[in-house]
Amino acid sequence: MNIKILGPGCKNCQRLERETRRAVDELGLDATVDKVTDYAAIAGYGVMSTPGLVVDDQVVMSGRVPDADEIKVLLRR
């Protein structure tokens, strides 16, 4: 599984990364978590409000920071 965090590096993006890594650890998933900070690339996903969460090239959430429990639900889908 490949997970991407979309965001230029603001506080919310860092929080999302932290929560996502926690969710991955707690689920024991075999996943890579990458950061996408390039604005053009972020826009390429159609995300206009950062941060965004991309799982296997599908945008599953954008514009807010869900907690680890909610991310777990998104990852299990």
Binding site: P8, C10, Y39, A40, I42, A43, G46, M48, S49, G63
Partner: peptide, 17 residues
């Protein structure tokens, strides 16, 4: 619209493009 200033660039690109 709720919108934080760190989103202004993705938003700009999204609108203009």
């Amino acid at each position: 619209t709720p919108f934080c200033s760190c989103s202004s660039i993705p938003l700009f690109i999204g609108f203009v493009a």
